[in-house]
Design a protein around this nucleic acid. Structure first.
Lengths: 147, 147
DNA sequence: TCTTATTTGCAAGTCACTTGCATTTGTGTT
DNA sequence: AACACAAATGCAAGTGACTTGCAAATAAGA
């Protein structure tokens, strides 16, 4: 799954490149992800869409369908932050999260080369797997503000 | 959260030690986790309970309540394997999983010392967190059998 | 055995997410 | 510019894992 450079592309060109039809819903949703550099839930997307004056109402079902379609197309990545809702973020660079189990604050961190080496060693030792496609790594703690 | 040595303790002693009242449901559910060394869902627990001749019917709600109570008490750990249901396993040793995204096969792997060192370095670099309580690390790929 | 707080069963409820279907809309074609 | 048609959307109903209120049952200390 090739990475997306969201800095250089506008939403419509990216959608076109990925073979999506350009619709107001898709443009607006992708735009929200590009402007907000944090993980977002379907519910948060809906709220942000409601506030937009430039666009009519977009149905909740459409948001869910768009998110899952973007995920399948490699534009978004679904992440599990141990909350009751799924979070999505742009899949344009590989990083992980530290989540405050008290207030929900999320901080990103980059994966190091050492980490990749360790992961490959784990797979080398595995009897049932010879390679892995992806992995999730999330840290949980209490942030300084809550402490 | 102190680790549990399930090898040395029988279910009732462990429950008592943790301050739980001993009930048939709790004994049976904990027993299932001790005998099955794999992550299990609430649904799988229900099925296994149904098969037991030694015990009457145990309600689904009781299973959910017991699982979440055991989780809160540190006996079980909830893990996210990117499926539609929550998995639980005994929290008696720290390990992670490689999951086949095709057939669902799960393999455990131990965390290395290098990994712990890397994680502590990540936290050292963090501006918002000064320590973490736990972390999740799951690898996803296609197992040899499916390949 | 008694007492009381806890646990359980049952049924109804919740909530994120999905889906069937009729209508609308992008987009390539004429 | 209009057409045709597959794809996208809105709406409402459905799904499924999980939760909860409440009355009845029960574990465990007195």
């Amino acid at each position: 799954m090739e990475d997306i450079n969201t800095e250089e592309l506008n939403t419509d060109i990216l959608l076109k490149k990925k073979g999506y039809k350009i619709t107001p819903a898709r443009t607006a949703i992708l735009d929200i992800f590009i402007k907000n550099k944090i993980p977002l839930t379907a519910y948060e997307i809906c709220k942000k869409l409601d506030k937009l004056k430039t666009i009519g109402d977009i149905n909740e079902a459409t948001v869910y369908r768009t998110l899952s379609s973007f995920e399948k197309g490699g534009i978004l990545k679904k992440i599990d932050l141990r909350k009751d809702r799924a979070y999505f973020e742009l899949s344009n660079d590989h990083h992980h999260h530290i989540v405050c189990t008290n207030c929900g604050e999320i901080e990103d961190f980059k994966e190091s080369n050492e980490m990749e080496i360790i992961l490959s060693q784990i797979v080398k030792k595995s009897s049932k797997f010879k390679n892995i496609k992806e992995h999730s790594l999330e840290l949980f703690g209490i942030c300084r503000a809550c402490n």
